[in-house]
């Protein structure tokens, strides 16, 4: 895998000059992924923070060819680009070797974009889809998505007098993607650049669709100090709320097992969106959430090293 020193010499396709929040993990995620490519990259973004924050006309923070089409169609758009690339190559009209990547938030991926993504994966295009998962519709102002974790407070599932935050558990997106039997699926976290860059390298090297689900802490939505974005990602991984693993040609491999699995409360108590859950009357909710995280982790451990 590429060294940090080598990375400093790679072409940095995004920024400086974007307008994402200080402490936003999305730009870190995007740059970690782009730096992993050994070839020129063409990128697409779904509507969302990354798109809005990087391209207010007449400015653009993208130094690579980049396209935004709409919210739910980043996968359809980038595979349209990739198909044209193949068409022109076949006709001898284009010589370059290029990698293709689409970035979508959790809203644009777990929810509104899942149909277009599923179709693109099934068709088998050679492209990388990156979900930067900040666990809610942050661009429109912190509304719940199907990636929003249990009992988090958002503006459309606020912790109220009667309902203490989002009643549902999140969707297991990586498993849904893996069920498409594509060659490479991974879950990663930006607090460990080796994790994201290493998996992105494998994703770009894959001859077919590859998918990366990357945790992208949002200090506005999670109600954390902006300096804590990467630290909270580390705690998410060490509590096994956000396990790091990959599924290569159907075989699951956990890529990081914490030496000491931290209790979930360590992650929850860092976040303002969970302040209500710390009240004594809500203790059972923490237990329920912990049970769910434990159960998912146990299932993952049981599948470690096996073919799905």
């Amino acid at each position: 895998m590429v060294t940090l020193k080598e990375l400093t010499h790679r072409y940095d396709g995004l920024g400086p000059g974007h307008r994402l929040c200080a402490g936003c993990a999305a730009s870190i995620v995007a740059r970690q992924v782009l730096l992993a490519s050994d070839k020129p990259v063409i990128a697409a973004s779904a509507t969302g923070c990354l798109e809005v924050g990087t391209t207010i006309y007449p400015y653009s923070a993208w130094k690579i060819p980049w396209i935004h089409n709409a919210f739910e169609n980043a996968a359809a758009t980038i595979t349209g680009v990739e198909t044209m690339y193949r068409a022109l190559k076949k006709q001898g009209k284009y010589k370059e070797d290029v990698n293709f990547v689409a970035f979508g938030g959790d809203g644009g991926t777990y929810d509104i974009g899942i149909q277009a993504l599923s179709g693109a994966l099934e068709r088998g295009h050679k492209f990388v889809y990156v979900c930067y998962d900040n666990e809610a519709y942050m661009n429109t102002g912190i509304q719940r998505s199907s990636a929003t974790p249990f009992r988090a407070s958002t503006t459309t599932c606020p912790a109220g007098e009667v309902i203490p935050g989002k009643p549902q558990h999140r969707k297991d997106l990586a498993a849904i993607i893996a069920a498409h039997h594509i060659p490479y699926v991974a879950q990663c976290s930006p607090h460990n650049w080796r994790d994201v860059v290493g998996k992105a390298e494998k994703a770009f090297a894959t001859d077919g669709p590859a998918f990366l689900n990357i945790l992208s802490p949002c200090h506005r939505g999670w109600r954390i100090p902006m300096v804590d974005s990467l630290e909270i990602a580390r705690v998410a991984v060490d509590t096994c709320f956000w396990p790091l693993y990959e599924v290569v040609d159907g075989k699951l491999k956990i890529t990081y097992k914490p030496k000491e699995k931290l209790p979930l409360i360590e992650w929850l108590k860092m976040q303002g969106r969970y302040s209500h859950i710390l009240k004594p009357e809500n203790e059972h909710l923490i237990e329920e959430f912990q049970t769910e995280v434990d159960s998912e982790w146990e299932k993952l451990l049981a599948r470690d090293g096996t073919s799905l």
Binding site: I42, A44, I67, N69, A70, E72, N73, A75, A76, T77, I78, T79, G80, V81, E82, T83, M84, Y85, A87, L88, Q115, A116, S118, G119, A120, E122, R123
Partner: peptide, 19 residues
């Protein structure tokens, strides 16, 4: 491209034409 919906058909056309 035999896509999964007309929405993706037009989205892919946009990507392909922009390419």
């Amino acid at each position: 491209m035999t896509v999964e919906s007309e929405h993706s058909a037009m989205s892919a056309c946009v990507g392909a034409a922009a390419a």
